[in-house]
Design a protein around this nucleic acid. Sequence first.
RNA 1: UCUCGCUUAGCUCAGUUGGUUAGAGCAUCUGACUGUUAAUCAGAGGGUCCAAGGUUCAAGUCCUUGAGCGAGAGCCA
Length: 507
Amino acid sequence: MEKVLIQNLKNFENQEVSISGWLTNKRSGKGLEFLIIRDGSGFTQCIVDETKVNEKVFQLAKELSQESSLKLKGKVVKDERQIGGYEIQVQSLEIIHISNSFPITNKPHGVEFLMDNRHLWLRSKRQWAIMRIRNRIIFAIHNFFQNEGFVQMDAPVFTGNAVEGTTTLFETTFYEEKAYLTQSGQLYGEAMAMAMGRIYTFGPTFRAEKSKTRRHLSEFWMIEPEMAFFNNDMNMDLIENFIKYILKDVKEHCTQEFEVIERDTTSFDKIVNERFPRLTYDYAVKILTGKEKVDGKTTIETLEGDYNEVMHEIEDKLKQVQEAENEMKQSIKAGKKNFLQNKVDTLKNEIKDLEDKKRVIPEWINSAKTFEYGSDLGGSDETVLTRMFDLPLMVYNWPHEVKAFYMKRDEKDPRLAKGVDVLAPEGYGEIVGGGERETNEDLLIEKINEHQLPMKAFEWYLDLRRYGSVPHAGFGLGLERMVAWVCKLKHIRETIPFPRMYGRLFP
RNA sequence: UCUCGCUUAGCUCAGUUGGUUAGAGCAUCUGACUGUUAAUCAGAGGGUCCAAGGUUCAAGUCCUUGAGCGAGAGCCA
């Protein structure tokens, strides 16, 4: 008898197989036990029929609790109604371990409880799907760069110098010296690009920002390609192709996972096929502040429309709650009552979310209206801008003051730096930041002084401009932000197995 | 760091203008039910109402301070 993975059951129709896994849920009837088993590769229903197995096997099936581990043998039968399209008619069963009162039940839980139990939460279906999508995105990233002739490199995690100022560094000690955990591998990537031509880093980065928002982690994974003989236009072309490649690949290979998390991926088609809008910072600011329209509407008008829509939705949902609660007051069966109670609970949660939105939209409108030319785009400004398009936006040619010291100044307009930010649609904001690097040693030195960075720590970096300096460019992609957008998650904490964020070091 | 909100059973939540013995669903345990899709039905056990202080004849409910969590802002990928 063959030992198989659940994902391969379709190849064993009407055959006897053996599977090993965990019980994720159970329903029982007289003489029947319906076991939902997961083995990491997928989920399937296994039926234990009292009339078809010996008494001992049926007794074992009755003893199984949620998350108990087991081995079973049975026949694979096609059944369209079941998850995966197949079920197993059990012949024999062996318990490996009985799990005692698994804390995460098949009912809603709060964020804090789930995060405290992250090590167990990862077993749930939704987390399973997200982790597999994350895996596929990682695989696609490597494929893309390897196909384009890039060499993967590992940048150091301990660093002696800060890349973007010292406020957000985790400080540690390296023997007797003060050291920091890296916040970007880029400078090392530049050195490697001068050796290999095209490289990409794929590693962890650390930022000690005390921010508790839906798009921040203290430890996150960043992909940073760096290309010799590239200008910023070539850089933007590469970014665009890169994002398109990932979306296409993940859509093709993760259909089942997207179904589990109920992510509609039809919006990817447009993104894969159309050119991303490229806006200069100047033009983006005009749109943001309402001086330019997109599809005949200003940002302010669009947001006011959103606000009214939210108000209507809240009213509508309140009405539905009232109706359900009235119905519950009449004497009805407990099953129906239970159903209505669940409906009311989900509606109330949705209303809570909508009320948050209602509170925030006026703040966004205000932020857009009062935006000052020359400053960096804030989180709310990004959301407002991306709200106007259903494609990723590329904003380039930034005021040089708001960008990092290594960014190349525009020869035609010295007020500008040749940086580019990519803003993901659906409110996900900045997922990529990059640009062309400054090649002129004198300008770099000037910038390092301006940013009050220790020159000594950058001597090696300046060497790159002394020995065969060439135009080069690169960018950084935040893996978790990409996963959050692809999966359309509310919060970045679900995109990584064990998130490290302000206030969260365990488990 | 700032603004707003939350903290009641293992979990998710009700708890009215302060008023007798704090409730429901799920989970757990016992039983019923021949195909269930978060199965259903009957029953049982399960509480330091976040902490400290205050107001009051009386506080889960009101006030003050603190802690933790959540949603934003700032900063960023």
